[in-house]
């Protein structure tokens, strides 16, 4: 299980950077990032190497954010891989809220971050179907 930070940002010039500059100052490394936006505001979701530290620092700097558990799965870099994982989730009747992928993977295989309503069940079922669950230490 990974810890993801969801941060409220306004949809304005420079607003993402208000977050990244704070993280940079404290030497926190971003591993994955996704934004969901409307014309007015967005939720920035990031996975970092030191989530608790990042939360404390961002809160000190006045951000509203939340730590949420998410799951990451290792995929082979070939056609049909994502479809296979999604089929497992669909067949189990689980609700997948969003997915995004990692920024950089040293071993070059894609890692996909997923937010699913019932994470424990998802993890178990994915494992049963031979999907490799990823961690930050990979």
């Amino acid at each position: 299980m990974l810890k993801q930070l969801s941060i409220f940002v306004e949809n304005e010039i420079g607003s993402l950077r208000t977050v990244t500059s704070v993280l940079k100052k404290h030497n926190i490394n971003i591993r994955a990032i996704a934004t969901f936006d409307s014309p007015e505001f967005g939720i920035l979701r990031i996975i970092v190497d030191k989530p608790e530290l990042a939360r404390d620092i961002l809160e000190e700097n006045g951000f509203v954010l939340k730590i949420t558990n998410v799951i990451a799965v290792n995929l082979e870099d070939r056609p049909g891989e994502l479809d296979k994982v999604l089929a497992v989730i669909e067949n189990a009747g689980l609700n997948l809220n969003y997915i995004y992928s990692f920024v950089i993977r040293e071993d070059n295989s894609p890692l996909l971050v997923m937010h699913i309503d019932d994470l424990e069940i998802a993890k178990q079922i994915l494992s049963e179907h031979g999907v490799k669950i990823g961690t930050l230490e990979d």
Binding site: S6, F41, I43, V64, K66, T68
Partner: peptide, 11 residues
């Protein structure tokens, strides 16, 4: 101003 972090789970 938004101040409730619980609303950040889902858009």
């Amino acid at each position: 101003e938004l101040c409730d972090d619980n609303k950040l789970d889902l858009y």
